[in-house]
């Protein structure tokens, strides 16, 4: 019986198996070299911080550092709250709340950006959703942008008094982290 060259023989099997072995082995060797660059367990550990809000008077704002990021805490004035509540959803660039405590499709109403009963406190990660700068608007003399909230100096994104992007290149509203009121004047972020 003549040997049929078209039929896979033992050699073909060995070449295929060896190649597959090398490919899988190569990928497995590569993985640690990629994974080593990701945040390690120490960086991942969900550090939480407590912030005392008592010294922050109405109209004032403070910035605290949480997980290496600035968190904006603003004690809003009644007119700032009413300005934010009055904005119709269709005027927003990003209509989702971006509140880590709420479902992803929650709308960006003023209520969804704060905690019920504590609407005077606006607490957000102070990192522009465009390219990660820290927007101006926390300190006394800062420009607060066209909508009375924050203005990113890098590329000109304007945020309103609920931290929602209203103008400029930023695609999303400022992120609201998970936080809880431990007491009436103390919050725990994270």
């Amino acid at each position: 019986m003549a040997i049929d060259a078209e039929e896979p023989d033992r050699r073909d099997f060995l070449v295929l198996a060896a190649s597959a072995f090398v490919a899988v082995g190569g990928a497995m060797t590569l993985w640690p070299f990629i994974q080593q660059m990701n945040p390690d367990a120490g960086a991942q550990a969900l550090a939480s911080i407590e912030v005392d809000l008592a010294p922050v008077k109405e109209g004032q704002a403070i910035t605290v550092l949480w997980r290496g990021k600035p968190v904006f805490i603003r004690h809003r004035m009644p007119e700032e709250i009413s300005a934010a509540t009055a904005v119709p959803m269709k005027d927003l660039i990003d209509e989702f709340a971006r509140n880590d405590a709420l479902p992803e499709d929650a709308l960006a109403t003023d209520l969804n950006r704060t905690k019920q009963g504590h609407e005077n406190w606006l607490i957000m990660v102070g990192i522009c959703t465009h390219l990660g700068c820290v927007p101006k608007g926390q300190a006394q003399g800062d420009s607060k942008g066209d909508f009375g909230g924050w203005l990113c100096p890098c590329h000109g994104s304007h945020y309103d008094t609920a931290g929602r992007v209203r103008k400029g290149p930023a695609p999303r509203n400022l992120e609201v982290p998970v936080y809880d009121f431990v007491s009436d004047t103390k919050i725990k972020i994270g």
């Binding site: 990629i34 660059m37 990701n38 945040p39 390690d40 960086a43 997980r67 290496g68 990021k69 990192i127």
Partner: peptide, 16 residues
């Protein structure tokens, strides 16, 4: 986050 090695630019980023 992979480039940074954290959730913001840190010393880990500088080192790499």
């Amino acid at each position: 986050e992979w480039l940074w090695g954290g959730y913001a630019v840190t010393g880990a980023t500088l080192n790499r």
